[in-house]
Simulated assay, not measured.
Amino acid sequence: MEELSSAFTSGLGFESKEPTVQSHSSLHKVKGSGLSSQEERRRRNLQLQKEKRKDYLSQVRKLVESDDEGIEDDEEEMESSSTRQRRKQGCKRHMANQLMLSEWMVDVPPDLDDNWFMVACPRGRRCLVTTNGGTTRAFRKNGYCFKRFPSHLPAGKRRNRSGDSKPVILDCVFNEAEKTFYVLDVMCWMNHPVYDSDTEFRFFWLQAKFSEVPNASEISDINPFAFIPLPCYPCSKSTMESVMGREMPFKADLDGILFYHKQTHYTTGSTPLVGWLKPWMLPEVLRVSVPQKYIDNKLPEEPWKPPNVPSEMECSTQESTTGKQTEEHAG
C-alpha cells in the first residue's frame, strides 16, 4: 500500500507534504443578504455531488460528435449557406459552458493544507479540447470552435484509424505564442468519462495517460500544437513557497494559481470548490511569500485581495476588476 501511495504521489508531481496549518484563498466569495458564505457553499456542493447521478457517456457523445462545421466567424469568411450557419449555431449551443470555472478565493478553506491541490496556471485562453474521428478541435468558453487540427492524442489524427472511435475531452489553457495547450484537467480519455471521479483521481489519470502519448508534447507537422499536462502540488505553506520560488513548468507568463478541492467532481460552471488567486495576492491572503517579480507585475488598478462579488450568477462570467478575465483569463 505504501508503494502504491508513493507511486500515485509521484505521478501527480507532488512534493512531500509538511504538517503545517497555513491556508490559502480561492476564487470568488459571495456575500450579501440571503447568500451563504463560500465555505458553506463548498460543503453543500460536496454533499450534492454525492446525490447526483448522470449518464456521462451520453454527455461525451454529445460533445465529441457535434458537427462544428469549421472555425468561428471572426476567423473565417462568412458562409453563404444558411444550413451550415444553423449547424454552427447548433454546435455552439452544445459546446458552450462546458468548463468547470473557479471563484475568487475569498474565504480561505480551513482544510486547505489537507484537502486541496494547487496548480500554477499560465496566461492564455481557457478552452475545451475534444478529439473524434481523426480530428482535434478546440472550443472557446462560449462554444465557438477556434481550432481544428490533427494531434497525437487518441482519436486526434486520421493516420490512427484504430483509435478514431475512442475520443478524448480535456480542459486546457491555450497559449498562441507557445503553440501549446496546457492541460488543466481531463473529463474523458479514450471513451472513458471521469466527470464523476474526484480531483485526486483525475489528476493522477491525466499524468498517467499523457505518459502513454509522449509525442503529444512535441510540435510537428502531424501534431502542430503541443499538449502539456500541468502538475499539481499540495497546499502546505512550504510547498507553495517552493513552487512560487522556482521556474514555472511553462514558458508563458504566470497568470494565477488555481486551487482544487481533492473531492470535487468535474462540474460545469463556476464552483466554490475551485479557487483562484493572482500571484501577488498570496502574501496578503495566504501569508505565502512570493518572488518580488510577481509583486512588480501587479498593475496599479489591480487589488491586493480578491474582490467580493454581489451574486453567484456574476461568478460564472469570470469578469472582475483584476484585469482581463474573459476569454484570456485561465480561471
Rank of each mutant, 00 (worst) to 15 (best):
Asn132Ile: 12
Asp255Lys: 11
Glu301Asn: 01
Ser58Val: 13
Phe203Trp: 13
Ser242Val: 03
Leu184Met: 13
Ala120Lys: 11
Ser162Ile: 10
Pro109Asp: 02
Ser82Ala: 15
Cys172Ser: 12
Met281Ile: 04
Leu184Gly: 06
Tyr56Trp: 14
Asn160His: 15
Arg137Thr: 02
Gln207Glu: 08
Gly134Tyr: 06
Gly124Met: 06
Leu101Met: 12
Asp198Tyr: 06
Pro303Ile: 00
Phe201Met: 13
Thr135Pro: 07
Met1His: 13
Ser311Lys: 07
Val309Cys: 00
Ile71Arg: 04
Asn223Ile: 04
Lys92Trp: 09
Leu99Pro: 03
Asn45His: 13
Thr130Glu: 05
Arg43Thr: 11
Ile222Gln: 11
Lys166His: 14
Val173Tyr: 04
Ser289Leu: 11
Arg161Cys: 08
Leu57Gly: 09
Leu170Val: 05
Pro283Trp: 01
Arg84Cys: 12
Val108Thr: 08
Thr180His: 02
Arg159Leu: 09
Phe174Leu: 01
Gly163Pro: 06
Glu2His: 11
Phe139Val: 02
Leu184Tyr: 11
Val213Ile: 14
Thr264Lys: 15
Cys127Leu: 04
Gly143Glu: 03
Asn115Trp: 09
Thr267Gly: 12
Arg202Lys: 10
Asp74Ser: 12
Pro154Glu: 07
Asn191Ala: 06
Tyr260Thr: 03
Val30Tyr: 10
Val186Ala: 10
Gln22Thr: 05
Glu301Ala: 01
Pro224Ala: 03
Phe204Tyr: 11
Thr83Gln: 13
Ala226Thr: 03
Asp221Thr: 14
His192Asn: 11
Phe259Leu: 07
Arg84His: 11
Val309Met: 01
Leu153Glu: 07
Ser81Thr: 05
Lys262Asp: 10
Cys91Met: 09
Asn160Phe: 13
Glu212Val: 02
Cys315Glu: 05
Met118Glu: 09
Asp171Tyr: 02
Trp116Cys: 13
Gly11Ser: 07
Glu319Val: 00
His24Thr: 11
Arg161Met: 06
Ile169Phe: 15
Ser37Leu: 06
Ile169Asp: 12
Cys121Arg: 09
Glu319Trp: 00
Arg140Lys: 12
Glu103Pro: 04
Val288Arg: 09
Tyr195Thr: 01
Cys121Ser: 15
Thr83Val: 15
Glu3Trp: 06
Ser80Phe: 14
Glu302Lys: 00
Glu18Gly: 07
Pro249Leu: 07
Arg159Gly: 15
Leu101Trp: 10
Gly156Ser: 08
Asp255His: 14
Gln89Cys: 10
Asn132Ser: 02
Phe204Leu: 09
Thr83Arg: 14
Ala208Trp: 06
Gly13His: 02
Pro310Asp: 04
Ala208His: 09
Gln85Ser: 15
Gly323Trp: 00
Asp296Asn: 07
Phe259Asn: 06
Ala138Met: 02
Lys157Gln: 14
Ala7Arg: 08
Asn175Leu: 08
Asp255Tyr: 14
Asn97Phe: 01
Lys29Ala: 13
Thr326Glu: 09
Gly90Ile: 01
Glu176His: 14
Glu312Lys: 08
Lys62His: 05
Ser151Trp: 01
Ser23Tyr: 04
Asn115Glu: 15
Glu247Asp: 14
Phe210Leu: 03
Leu27Lys: 05
Ser242Cys: 12
Arg148Pro: 08
Cys91Trp: 08
Met118Pro: 04
Ser311Met: 06
Thr20Glu: 15
Glu51Trp: 11
Glu176Tyr: 10
Thr322Gln: 00
Pro306Gln: 00
Lys251His: 03
